[in-house]
């Protein structure tokens, strides 16, 4: 089903999304990938405050290419999510509502998603030029020294994503292939 949602995303919205839904996201989201996740994780371990409030927020696993002069951002597609699996449950427990990436997730992440009613979206990998068109504003707000891996605040308009794992733990990567093979 095609749906439009706004970000940040409340739990009430999250639970209405099902694996297989084609969703357009508008609003504010944040980027973070490997190095930013590692640093956030260490910050929490030391009992300190994170640079962003995770409550109801969606994190896009993205490290963009540099923007040309006058442009908002460069190419901006998803990176492989499984590298964030080690850190995701902790962040979900803190209220993070959604993740955008590509590829499979671990059992622990899926369990934590069900517990926290969170959603995992996939953006199409390798479509970074196309996806960059949906990003209207981008600003580095933390960990600037990490370059492409810094945390960015993005304003997005109709960012096209697909719900791969929903808040009930239904997983499109597991069902889609069988469904397809049945149609043959």
């Amino acid at each position: 089903m095609e749906k439009h949602i706004t970000a940040p995303m409340t739990k009430e919205t999250a639970v209405t999304l099902s694996a297989g839904d084609y969703v357009y996201i508008s609003g504010t989201i944040y980027t973070a990938r490997d190095a930013a996740h590692k640093r956030m994780f260490e910050t929490l371990k030391e009992g300190e405050q994170l640079p962003i409030d995770l409550e109801n927020n969606i994190i896009y696993y993205l490290g963009p290419t540099p923007a040309r002069e006058g442009k908002v951002i460069g190419s901006a597609g998803p990176t492989t999510s499984s590298r964030m699996d080690k850190y995701a449950p902790t962040l979900l427990d803190m209220g993070q509502a959604g993740m955008i990436g590509k590829g499979k997730r671990s059992e622990e992440v899926i369990k934590s998603m069900v517990k926290n009613q969170a959603v995992y979206f996939a953006a199409v990998g390798g479509a970074g030029a196309l996806l960059s068109k949906c990003i209207k504003k981008a600003e580095v707000i933390a960990y600037e020294d990490l370059g492409t891996e810094a945390i960015r605040k993005l304003e997005v308009e109709n960012l096209p994503v697909i719900v791969v794992i929903d808040s009930k733990g239904q997983n499109l990567y597991e069902t889609a292939i069988d469904e397809y093979l049945k149609t043959l």
């Binding site: 290419t65 190419s75 597609g77 970074g128 030029a129 068109k133």
Partner: peptide, 20 residues
């Protein structure tokens, strides 16, 4: 989407994928 992405990359002189 991938076909459209290739066209945008050419026209806007932007990488096809962010992982260059």
């Amino acid at each position: 989407q991938l076909c459209e992405n290739m066209n945008i990359a050419k026209e806007d002189q932007i990488p096809i994928c962010q992982d260059t």
